[in-house]
Simulated assay, not measured.
Amino acid sequence: MTTWGDTGVFRPRELGSRSRAAGGPWRLDEVVDVPDTVVDAGQVGALEIRAASTRGAAHRSRGEVRQDAVGVLDLSGRYVLAAVADGASTATHAHRGAQIAVRHALGYLAWALPGADLDSVDMVNALRTAGRAVRDAGPSPESRATTLTVAVVELGWAGQGHRYRAVRVGDSPALVLTSGTFLPLFAKQGNDRLPTPRGPADRVQGVLRAGEALVLATSGLGAPVRETPVGAYLAEAWSEVPGPVTYLHHLQFDLRSFEDDRTAAVIWAGHEH
């Protein structure tokens, strides 16, 4: 009998009881343009960026498409943009909604920010633009229901760190990793979805200091960070900026009952020279 999956240093870190689904072979899904995993990485000034979205064990074992999406963008060396979306598990085309939401939210900000001050740009308009795009992408808009969390980090604000703004619809969290602790930025657990949120968008602003990291995640990562030893594990693992492959390995931990897609965009603030 052969062993399915990676071994040695590439084996997913076990952080509790093992997931039965994670131990079995993956099944290919039927969506050609949504791969199992995407990874991105880069450096912009004193900021280091890592982003990944990876299919959860439950979806892999059933041959279902990854419903999360992520995007990061360097805007003229002045702003770093990031977005994550978590397609609703009950929506038949949730993966499309998530992709559309991320693409159009970042597209709006890439259009609105050049030549503008961060304070003059209404971040909520990025959510509205994404919501319209999700709604207008075809019949049955609710089949594309998705959360969306978007952030902008402005480099080197007055030598006092990096200003950021974040907005969201739904429950995909934003956090700051500081002094070994993940601090949630949004006070409540939202349950709205695009394209038709029922309440106002959540919004937050702050300053990212040297040594801190801004984290946008979907609930597949946010829930275990909040509720299990995953929080301590990632706080230690991300105390320094990992390489892109190591970063992806961090997201591939094995833990029973936490088998959803895992997506995170992380922006680390280094020391300016």
Rank of each mutant, 00 (worst) to 15 (best):
V167T: 14
R103W: 00
L208P: 07
R96Y: 06
Q252K: 15
V80H: 10
R193E: 11
V102M: 13
V167E: 11
L175W: 06
D260P: 12
G97H: 12
S19G: 11
G77F: 00
R193K: 12
A110N: 08
E212I: 08
T178A: 15
A232Q: 11
P229G: 13
A98S: 15
V31D: 03
Y233R: 07
G243V: 11
G243P: 10
T149Y: 09
D74F: 04
S179G: 04
V169F: 00
L214I: 07
N191S: 12
I100S: 10
G24K: 14
T149W: 08
I100L: 15
P195A: 11
G42Q: 02
G23K: 10
V121H: 07
V230S: 10
E236P: 03
E212Q: 15
G77P: 00
F10C: 06
A174C: 13
A91W: 06
G131H: 12
I49E: 09
P242K: 14
A91M: 04
L221W: 12
V169A: 10
L234E: 10
T54N: 04
H104P: 03
L118H: 08
Q99S: 15
R209G: 01
L155V: 04
V266T: 14
T146E: 14
G5T: 04
V241F: 05
S17V: 10
G159Y: 00
S219Q: 02
L194E: 14
S143N: 11
R62V: 01
A137I: 09
W238R: 04
W26Y: 05
R96F: 04
L113R: 04
R163M: 06
V153C: 01
V176L: 11
P173R: 06
G190E: 02
S219F: 00
G24A: 14
A101R: 12
A130G: 09
L214H: 11
E259A: 04
T7G: 13
R132Q: 11
T196W: 01
G161H: 04
L47I: 02
F253A: 05
L148C: 03
R62W: 02
P35L: 00
I49T: 06
G5M: 09
G156Y: 01
F10L: 15
F253M: 04
P35W: 02
H250R: 09
A85K: 08
A145F: 05
A264H: 12
R168S: 07
P173D: 09
V39R: 12
F10V: 01
W4I: 13
R256F: 03
A41G: 03
L73R: 07
G45E: 03
D68Y: 07
R209W: 05
V245T: 12
L118T: 06
A58V: 10
G161V: 02
A151N: 07
A166W: 01
L106R: 13
A91Y: 07
D29G: 05
L248I: 02
A58C: 08
A264G: 13
D33C: 01
S172Y: 06
N125E: 14
G56F: 02
A269I: 02
L15A: 09
A217E: 14
A232D: 15
G206N: 03
E272R: 08
A51D: 02
L47M: 04
L251Q: 07
K188E: 15
G42P: 09
R103L: 01
T149R: 05
V152K: 08
T178S: 15
L73K: 01
V31M: 04
E212H: 11
R60E: 08
